[in-house]
Amino acid sequence: MLWYQIVFLSLIQGLTEFLPISSSAHLILPAQLLNWQDQGLAFDVAVHVGTLIAIVGYFRKDIAQIVVAWCVSIKDRQSTSDSRLAWWICLATIPACVAGLVFDEFISTHLRSVEVIGYTTIGFGVLLWLSDRYGSNSKTEYDFCPKSVVYIGLAQALALIPGTSRSGITMTAARFLGFSRECAARFSFLLSIPLILAAGGLKLIELISSNVMVDWTSIVVGVVLSAISAYLCIYLFLKWLNRIGFFPFFVYRLILGSLLLFIVYV
């Protein structure tokens, strides 16, 4: 890849991984609309590592408390709010993992198109706005239960469809269930960690088994830029979320989706 492609794709991954606008759509589109060569498996691994570094770095204290509480709950069977949150994250991760194993090939073959991304960008954007417009703010992370966590997990599985947005659909589900914006966003971000680990790990295994040549300069730049941009994105998003809500992201998705469908049909 040329240097500006490396910089652009790294920043796009970092900025869109945690915003409710779909990182997969933004990584697929440049290759299809600008006739860029596919960035390749090694670069996908790099930007996933970058976003993982960002989310772990930002929530490092929370993660440490959750992991310790989870281990204690297994050893001593002591339940706390942090240990329950750890189990909720595990439970909510299962549907997406199962769906990924079952439908990955079908999605890669039939759904990675500009047309599909256009429709999902608009459709799930509308749902995001409706959830924020009519959802209450009555629940916090202490109000999670198996039923609500399973709903969020099933919603997360839909994010395998390009254009859906993993963070967007999980926040949408949480807001429809009555959780506050901050709680929905925080749970969505923590929920991303096992999936990013799984996706990055699978891509790494594919990379090792493929014996392809790796451009290490591109890899390092991808990791650094995606990590920095993702960290800033998480910080600013959580800082401004209660002030601006999800409406600006709905408008962005509506404009982007309409533009993509215009390109397809005109």
Rank of each mutant, 00 (worst) to 15 (best):
L254R: 09
I169T: 03
G200A: 08
A199D: 06
N35T: 14
Q5P: 09
G50Q: 07
A155D: 08
F246M: 14
L128G: 12
V47A: 06
I219W: 09
S108L: 15
R77I: 04
Q32H: 15
G14M: 01
A69L: 13
A157V: 07
H26G: 04
A174Y: 08
L19Y: 02
F187Y: 15
K75W: 12
Y151P: 05
A96H: 06
Y4Q: 11
F103P: 07
G222Q: 05
F43Q: 12
L238E: 00
A46M: 00
L128S: 02
S229H: 00
L154I: 11
L197T: 14
P20Q: 05
F250A: 12
V67M: 12
T51V: 11
L19E: 01
L128R: 12
V98N: 07
V149D: 15
N35A: 15
L85I: 14
L11R: 13
G178I: 00
Y231E: 02
W129K: 11
W88E: 10
P162D: 03
Q156N: 15
L91I: 11
S23E: 05
Y265H: 13
C90Y: 08
L33V: 12
I63Y: 00
L2Y: 08
L15T: 07
Y134V: 05
A46V: 11
I205W: 15
V114D: 15
A199E: 05
L236W: 14
S136P: 01
Y142T: 14
I6M: 08
L204Y: 07
A86T: 05
E105Q: 13
L158A: 06
S258W: 00
L52R: 02
Y4T: 14
K203E: 07
L52W: 00
A185K: 00
A25K: 02
S81G: 10
V126D: 03
A227S: 14
C183D: 00
R112I: 04
F106S: 13
A99V: 09
L111R: 06
A92R: 00
Q156A: 13
Y4S: 11
H48A: 13
P248Y: 15
A31Q: 12
R175Y: 00
K75H: 14
I89D: 01
I255S: 04
T140D: 05
